[in-house]
Design a protein around this nucleic acid. Structure first.
Length: 557
RNA sequence: UGACCCAUGGUGUAAUGGUAACACUACUGAUUUUGGUUCAGUCAUUUAAGGUUCGAAUCCUUAUGGGUCAACCA
């Protein structure tokens, strides 16, 4: 274990290397990072990677992480999202030092803009957005200067003031940085700093009618907060040149931007736009639908915060495009749940078994005991009632079994988990030939924990006593899409939605201990999978979500 | 026909000029009152071509492939 840890410490990701160098050279004594979501959607597992990275780095190297909402576009942002984001970060197990908003800096940002106008590095442009686009050129052709580019400082100051005062209509003017219209980096071709939007902002209300663009807000916000390492995804690489330019021209704290590759997952989509479509067009039941790759969806599904953190840490980060197998997330979820989930017996698709030679004394039944978790000796046991009428899983019986079928078949024996060994004596069918019931006999000396029968059976089945059974609805989830990367397929990504992403079991039969099921507790339905109680449960009925199935090593032919 | 970023098993990530490794997956086998877990093992990797070097996944050059950039989004 210690060797393993040492090895892990030795192999740093590229950001850790940069930070260790910075710390060693004395560039910083401690570091500051930030997690900067835009409050216009729910967080997904890609954000979880960023959260674990940013918070993990300051935890490891000393320093702190701010939660900063990048709320510079009032038309798409909302407080509903602010709350969900805070919830998700907390649930993942991280604490931010300061809760901040880019909108907190609107006054300072306005001052920075004036500073640049005064230096002759920004101007008000009256061009329409089409004109700006035309003059911008293309990646292979240089752009051309705007006719408004050479206004005097005084005129720019006056115009910008009047933009702020609300004298102009939306879209009629912008403030642009004066850099180089022929620059090979399109972002350096006089980028827009401010645009006019007469819109209500979720925090500043109607105070402003001009709002800064991302590029004129993000780096400056980092600088104001003295963020040492500003970590973002690869698509911002070309922005770094502009990020540095503004900081240099303004002479403010030199934060630095570093980029890593965003985390992609197979069989799902990750863009907020697409997720929003799934929600709005009702392909899923809200942002927290357990099939969604959102943090709230995965939480509702039963994924644990520690499994997600472990996933993020052990998958690591780098700078190349990637697509992580959904199966890897499931591995970490199972690894975690195996250690903690309470074992219970639940029959999804019942087949009645009558034990013909069992009378169970006066009561006709007996109470057996079964461990809550074989991985956890301290986990205790619970009581499980046994009687002469049981349900087993229909798929655990075959009339004409293949070679290595360890389950029940005519004349074949199996153990009932924590109970007795039984033998199938007779198969009862209805008029159509469908199996409706099995007549079995039990071996009295084979009682679990006191087996003197000497009989060895290969198979062990889960079961539920018919008269003690409790019913509940089960929701079985599968991958949301049929293809690995729906976004790269022909046509609309929604055509590739998996029609079987949700399967309902209207009435599963559960052992009576499930009456005490509580929210947030993980259960392993033996031989079936991990489940959690869903919020749709009510006094009239319990609903369970399948978090993930058990790994299944047996392949029926 | 531009600029920038990237290229290691099926997947993800290491190796920082000196024996290509770890995890997942797949497959074998052992254990097992969950066909789960656990344990042991097997298969499988440096995009290509040149160059530098005693020695290259690593440094250089070129090619190839992938990605990003022409929003008053972030």
């Amino acid at each position: 274990m210690s060797e393993e840890l040492k090895k892990e410490e030795r192999s740093l990701n590229f950001l850790e290397e940069i930070i260790e160098d910075d710390l060693k050279s004395g560039k910083y004594k401690s570091i500051v990072t930030r997690f900067p979501p835009e409050p216009n959607g729910y967080l997904h597992i890609g954000h979880a990677t960023s959260i674990c990275l940013n918070f993990g780095l300051t935890k490891k190297y000393g320093g702190y992480t701010n939660l900063r909402f990048d709320d510079t576009n009032p038309t798409t942002e909302d407080t509903e999202y602010v709350e969900s984001i805070k919830d998700d970060v907390r649930w993942l197990g991280f604490e931010w030092k300061n809760e901040l908003y880019a909108s907190d800096y609107f006054d300072q940002l306005y001052g920075f803009a004036i500073q640049l106008i005064n230096k002759g590095l920004a101007y008000v442009d009256d061009s329409t957005s089409e004109e700006i686009a035309t003059l911008k050129g293309t990646p292979t052709e240089p752009g051309k200067n705007s006719p408004y580019r050479n206004r005097s400082i005084e005129e720019n100051l006056d115009l910008f003031q009047r933009m702020r005062n609300g004298e102009f209509a939306d879209g009629s003017r912008t403030l642009r940085a004066k850099i180089d219209m022929a620059h090979t980096n399109m972002l350096m071709r006089d980028p827009i700093m401010y645009r006019i939007k007469h819109a209500h902002h979720h925090r500043t209300g109607d105070k402003w009618c001009i709002y800064p663009m991302y590029d004129f807000a993000h780096g400056q916000s980092d600088a104001i907060e003295e963020v040492t390492h500003s970590i973002c995804t690869l698509e911002f690489v070309p922005h770094r040149e502009l990020y540095d330019w503004f900081i240099e021209q303004l002479g403010i704290y030199p934060s630095h931007q570093y980029e890593f590759a965003r985390r992609n997952l197979t069989y799902t989509v990750m863009s907020k736009r697409k997720l929003l479509q799934l929600v709005n067009e009702k392909h899923v039941n809200g942002w927290d639908d357990p099939r969604m790759p959102t943090i709230s969806g995965m939480r509702r599904r039963g994924y644990t915060a520690s499994a997600l953190r472990e996933f993020c840490d052990r998958v690591g980060i780098a700078k190349r495009e990637n697509s992580v197998d959904l199966g890897l997330v499931e591995f970490f979820v199972r690894e975690d749940l195996n250690k903690t989930a309470l074992r219970r017996m639940v029959v999804f698709d019942p087949l009645k078994v009558v034990i013909t030679n069992y009378n169970g004394g006066d009561a006709g039944e007996e109470i057996l005991h079964s461990e809550n978790n074989p991985e956890d000796p301290a986990g205790g046991e619970r009581e499980v009632p046994f009687s002469n009428e049981l349900y087993i899983e229909r798929e655990d019986f075959m009339e004409n079994p293949p070679k290595k079928y360890f389950r029940l078949a005519p004349g074949q024996m199996v153990r009932l988990k924590s109970a007795y060994i039984i033998r199938c004596d007779e198969v009862i069918k209805d008029a159509d030939g469908h199996v409706t019931e099995l007549r079995c006999s039990y071996i009295p000396e084979s009682k679990s924990g006191a087996d003197t029968s000497g009989i060895n059976v290969k198979g062990t089945l889960h079961w539920v006593s018919v008269k003690h059974a409790v019913t509940a609805e089960l929701r079985l989830y599968d991958r949301l899409f049929r293809v690995e990367d729906p976004s790269s397929e022909e046509g609309d990504f929604k055509e590739y939605i998996n029609p079987d992403s949700l399967t309902l079991v209207k009435a599963a039969y559960m052992e009576p201990a499930m009456r005490n099921a509580v929210f947030g507790e993980a259960y392993q339905f033996i031989r079936k999978g991990y489940f959690v109680l869903d919020k749709d449960s009510s006094t009239s009925g319990m609903v369970f979500n399948r978090t993930v199935g058990l790994k299944d090593g047996w392949k029926a032919k």
